[in-house]
């Protein structure tokens, strides 16, 4: 995969938990254009291993002199977000992938309802720029714990005006999902990014109201979950790899020097899919890609987020 070398041009503490990073090309040239909702994967070398974490690109897709991402420091972080917060400083160089978009706006929609929870606001920051440029009707509904902890509210007020609706939980403000989705004109699409319960709630509400599947969109990147350690045997490479508790299978395979395909590293895109030849005790699927029957068959696995329930796996790699 072609990587881009970037330099950290600025870091800003946005809230106690969120930092905003600005990246520029080392030689000062322009970065590639992208579409609203795109993400990049940032590669970080730390503690003798490489972390690769996906982050949504914020800012306007048409302004390509710099890329912007925001990183929320995750509790129980396996290292990626903690490393970004503690060890990345201005002037450092990093490698990033070209932008990938797994959360695109439906170009034929007549109206867009964007629903964000907390740090889930980030992919919408670039999408609203596209929507404004195209002059399409939209509403941004942004829910968070408290105004003190919410990122980018002032910025959004300026840029979205009356299309922005904020909901501060500590102020007793709640988003009435049922009300919002019951009275939308034909051709409306809904998008949600945020904590898992919120995503599920939006999807379920829209479905129950009879919204067609293709008008419901969500982005739910998973961080690779911590699990039990296990061993992976690679049939073609003829090697054995230990997967420690706090490392994903994909990371462990890469650390062993075996080239594996990947794109989103969050269980969404399906690119890293591997064939499972043998297992002892089943698979712990965490991805959003495989169908339920594929998951049940135990013949395929997404090594970016999924793990073995047993002690050992034999993979077709």
């Amino acid at each position: 995969m072609n990587m881009i070398d970037v330099k950290v041009a600025a870091i800003k503490q946005v809230t106690p938990l969120i930092k905003h990073f600005t990246f520029v090309k080392e030689d000062g040239s322009e970065l590639p254009s992208f579409s609203g909702g795109s993400h990049i994967v940032v590669a970080l070398d730390a503690d003798g291993r490489t972390y690769r974490n996906p982050y949504s690109l914020m800012g306007s897709p048409t302004e390509t002199d710099a890329y912007h991402i925001s990183v929320r420091r995750q509790e129980n972080s396996r290292g990626g977000s903690a490393f970004m917060h503690e060890n990345v400083s201005v002037g450092m160089t990093l490698k990033i992938t070209h932008p990938v978009n797994l959360f695109t706006l439906a170009k034929m929609a007549h109206k867009h309802i964007l629903i964000a929870g907390g740090i889930g606001i980030t992919p919408f920051m670039s999408q609203i720029e596209d929507l404004k440029r195209l002059g399409v009707e939209y509403e941004l509904h942004y829910a968070f714990r408290s105004y003190a902890q919410a990122a980018f509210v002032d910025e959004l007020k300026k840029s979205c005006g009356s299309s922005l609706y904020c909901y501060g939980d500590s102020d007793g403000e709640r988003l009435d999902m049922q009300g919002l989705l019951s009275w939308q004109p034909l051709g409306t699409h809904v998008y949600v990014c945020g904590p898992s319960p919120m995503v599920v709630s939006v999807i379920e509400t829209a479905r129950n109201l009879g919204w067609p599947e293709h008008s419901i969109h969500n982005e739910q990147f998973l961080s690779p979950p911590v699990g039990e350690p296990f061993k992976v045997q690679l049939a073609k490479s003829e090697i054995e790899v230990e997967v420690p508790a706090e490392m994903s299978m994909l990371e462990a395979i890469e650390a062993a020097g075996v080239k594996a395909e990947y794109l989103c590293r969050g269980g969404v895109c399906g690119r890293c899919e591997l064939g499972v030849l043998e297992h002892d005790g089943g698979l712990e699927h965490h991805d959003h890609f495989l169908t339920e029957s594929e998951k049940a068959s135990c013949r395929k696995i997404m090594p970016c987020v999924s793990r073995s329930k047993g002690k050992r796996l034999l993979l077709d790699l």
Partner: peptide, 8 residues
């Protein structure tokens, strides 16, 4: 093709 990437 659905996973085709920029610059690739």
């Amino acid at each position: 093709l659905l996973n085709l990437q920029l610059a690739n």
